[in-house]
Design a binder for these strands. Structure first.
Length: 428
RNA sequence: GCGGUAUUGGUGAAGUUUGGUUAACACACCGGAUUGUGGUUCCGGCAUGCGUGGGUUCGAGUCCCACAUACCGCCCCA
């Protein structure tokens, strides 16, 4: 017990990696259908990659960054989210150039880091699966990204989701709305919660997100961003809604929904679920939006982007809470029982031969008694148990038993080592 | 970063209120029930130790302090 893992980290053991592999496998399959390809970027980046993009006043930058100076005095940050790194790579590798097809669609899955107080489904090292699509301002791309997210969740067995969408409009919209919101809230300054008092000037939109009951009263009467949309922003948002309807994707508009990261504009969305597994009420499992301007912010040309991120730990909690069945991806075809020391080499040869025929095979390595070995075969859910003892060694045979039916047969060892499939075809 | 609860074997845990020799029970695991056969049953084995470090006491798993970690709430978010 002397060494323990760092606070907020987790060891994922085989009982769980099974689930992770299942989830990752499904994600890859779904993304392939939408023609998103995988991109892998570093787990750490220069501090500025995140501080420039997430917003100086965002909580991520001000208190949740896992950052440090390396031996070369470089200010390094363990990535707290996926988008900034992908955008940096997009710019650095000049993927905005004419030789890449637009939209340029990629996905990622991997660890992210945030320095915060751990809770269940909330770690300092956690994992996200996300997508990014660059190079189109068309609302159709917003909807495509939303559609992938929904399809993903559906494939994970999460059907009962609520899709909330909102728009933050363009820069003009944001400026106008910000002014209106501050003007509305300022007279109530003294009545706001302490948190909201500081938010009011740093990032007034965040006041809308306050859970404080008193704040909520003001939020109810606050001006809606939807009334400040420029004609272009309105047209974009309208079309997103039209296309969602065209795809029969149910959604609701939540004009108070905001984002913790500053780089979003136009469409933002969240997939929420109401599951006890994730605490009370609706919890966000997948969130994203459009981030036009981020590419140029990181030194690229004016090129738009849209994407989402999904928390894997939360997803797995949710799937387990909803009783989603995870298939056993590594069933055991054959378990070898060896009786007596003389059988040691023979069982090893058979196990190896079976593996050569693409069967999953295992044996006892503890020199245990036959009874214990059979118990193990049963416990491991072996489909077949093969036995080699003194009798079999003498006659160069092997005993094969179908564990489900109880049927058994003795055949020459060579039959098993050359074509096990034919042997079992006869005893099923 | 703030507040609260918890921490006993491989696991779930009782015991902490009223400090006093041997840490309950169950599961898992291992072994056995006439010598080579599974899922049932029966029998037996399995914590010199109660998160870590101090302290109080004749004596502490049980009281006090610090630290670590987990969980819950706030903040925020995936």
């Amino acid at each position: 017990m002397r060494y323990q893992r760092p606070k907020g980290t987790a060891d994922t053991l085989p009982a769980d990696t099974r689930h992770w592999q299942y989830v990752e496998g499904i994600a890859r399959d779904v993304f392939a259908k939408y023609r998103f390809e995988e991109i892998r970027t570093p787990m750490f980046e220069n501090f500025e990659v995140f501080s420039r993009t997430s917003g100086d006043t965002s909580d991520i930058v001000t208190k949740e960054m896992y950052d440090f100076k390396d031996k070369g005095d470089r200010h390094i940050t363990l990535r707290p989210e996926g988008t900034a790194g992908v955008v940096r790579a997009f710019v650095e590798n000049k993927l905005y150039g004419p030789e890449t097809q637009k939209p340029y669609k990629v996905y990622y899955m991997g660890p992210m880091f945030r320095y915060e107080r751990p809770q269940s489904g909330r770690l300092r090292e956690f994992h996200q699966i996300g997508v990014e699509a660059f190079g189109s301002d068309e609302p159709a791309l917003d909807v495509e990204v939303i559609a992938v997210g929904r399809d993903l969740l559906k494939h994970f067995g999460i059907d009962n989701v609520r899709l909330a969408v909102n728009t933050l409009g363009d820069q003009q919209t944001r400026d106008d709305y910000r002014k209106a919101l501050v003007a509305y809230l300022e007279p109530h300054y003294e009545e706001l919660s302490d948190d909201s008092k500081t938010r009011l000037y740093k990032n007034p939109l965040r006041v809308l997100d306050s859970k404080d009951e008193q704040d909520q009263k003001f939020v109810e009467g606050a001006p809606s961003i939807l009334d400040y949309l420029t004609p272009e922003a309105q047209a974009h948002f309208d079309e997103v809604q039209n296309l969602l309807k065209a795809l029969d994707i149910p959604f609701e508009i939540d004009p108070t929904m905001v984002r913790g990261l500053d780089y979003y504009n136009h469409t933002i969305f969240e997939f929420m679920v109401n599951s006890k597994a994730l605490g009370h009420g609706y919890t966000t499992i997948c969130a994203g939006g459009r981030y036009n301007g981020l590419v140029s912010e990181l030194g690229g040309p004016e090129m738009s982007g849209v994407g989402f991120g999904m928390g894997v730990e939360r997803l797995l909690l949710l799937m387990q809470g909803e009783g989603v069945a995870f298939p056993d991806q590594h069933p055991l075809d054959a378990y070898l029982v060896g009786i007596g020391e003389g059988a040691n080499a023979a069982t090893l040869q058979v196990v190896q031969a079976l593996r050569g025929q693409d069967f999953a095979a295992d044996r006892d390595y503890l020199a245990r008694k036959p009874k214990a070995q059979f118990k193990t075969a049963d416990k491991l859910n072996a489909k077949y148990t093969l036995t080699i003892g003194e009798e079999e060694l003498k006659t160069n045979t092997i005993h094969v038993k179908n564990m489900a039916s109880g049927n058994e047969v003795t055949v020459p060892v060579a039959n098993v080592t050359s074509d096990f499939a034919a042997v079992i075809a006869n005893i099923d």
